[in-house]
Write a protein that binds this DNA or RNA. Structure first.
Length: 309
DNA sequence: GTAGGGTTAG
């Protein structure tokens, strides 16, 4: 069996569950038998497959078995896989090993994952060191890297630093704006978040579902029903199949503002209801003292085989 | 056919 065949096998094998894990191990075995355990493309695909099966030890083993892992994208892919799965210690550990490798240097694709790990662990000291390094190397000019810096400082509750980095960015994209709007929201400054939302639109950006989630939540926190309604009308199209984050935020906003009818309307229109949507709707009835509806919803939540948290 | 950042409640 050649590399192309193995690669297409790996690609059809996506998904989780025990079945695909067994298949992953079989393909892994074939790769080793053919002596292809240092083939970068195959290893990257196999590592991703093991991650989708949540078998992190095997993914790690694949990486460690590669004789000369001198391909940066392999490291960056593993770093991203770790942070995507909230394995922040593992990500920082891998980054350390990358720094120790005499033949490799981290590039602009490595830093976003590492900064996310720093933020996730609240390691602001580590984040600051990386910040200094980014200024020296020039990688901080990269829009994704600098947005990650903003996010890292915000996660570490260093909001002044976060805003400073954002203000100094020479170019911004949608995600940078979302990061800074979310930063104000996290800092308890929902009014500032809405202010930045306006600035974002004035700069020529149309909000996406991430933006809408944060600004609707900001309206909720400010109990600003009128503003929330406006945003709902203007940006969330009628009969549109809602994004589950946006619809949960809307249910919460209407519920908090005491507008039960609208909360229920959005809730009923949401095809795939998240746990947050259920909790927000139940919370809305609860705040009105309507325990009958609370219990009714709680029962149908179980009926839908959704586990309450 | 390569690898990166941003989202909701309690």
């Amino acid at each position: 069996m050649d590399t192309t065949k193995l690669l297409s096998l790996l690609r059809t094998c996506s998904g989780s569950g025990s079945k695909s894990l067994i298949r992953a191990k079989l393909i892994h075995q074939k790769i080793v038998i053919q002596g292809l355990q240092s083939n970068i493309v195959l290893c990257k695909s196999l590592i991703n497959l093991y991650f989708s099966c949540q078998n992190y030890d095997s993914a790690n083993l694949v990486f460690r078995t590669i004789e000369n892992p001198l391909d940066l994208s392999l490291w960056n892919g593993l770093l991203a896989a770790y942070t995507k799965n909230y394995m922040f210690f593992e990500a920082l550990d891998l980054f350390d090993r990358l720094l120790q490798n005499p033949f490799l240097k981290p590039d602009s694709f490595a830093y976003p994952s590492v900064l996310k790990a720093c933020g996730g662990l609240g390691r602001v000291g580590c984040g600051k060191m990386i910040h200094t390094h980014l200024i020296k190397t020039g990688f901080g000019l990269d829009i994704v890297v600098s947005s990650s810096l903003v996010g890292m400082y915000a996660k570490c509750h260093k909001f002044e630093y976060a805003i400073k980095v954002f203000d100094e960015m020479s170019a911004r994209d949608m995600a940078s704006w979302n990061t800074v709007i979310s930063c104000y929201y996290q800092d308890g400054q929902a009014d500032k978040a809405l202010e930045l939302f306006k600035k974002m639109r004035d700069s020529g950006f149309e909000p996406n579902s991430v933006t809408l989630t944060i600004v609707i939540s900001s309206c909720s926190r400010l109990l600003d029903l009128e503003r929330g309604k406006e945003i709902h009308k203007e940006y969330v199209k009628d009969g549109f199949v809602f994004d589950s984050y946006v619809s949960s935020a809307l249910v919460d906003m209407y519920g908090k503002c005491g507008c039960l009818e609208m909360a229920r309307e959005v809730f009923d229109q949401t095809p795939v209801k998240s746990v947050v949507a259920w909790n927000s709707m139940i919370g809305a009835y609860s705040s009105k003292g309507d325990s009958k509806s609370c219990i009714e919803l709680f029962r149908s939540m179980h009926w839908k085989e959704l586990n309450p948290q």
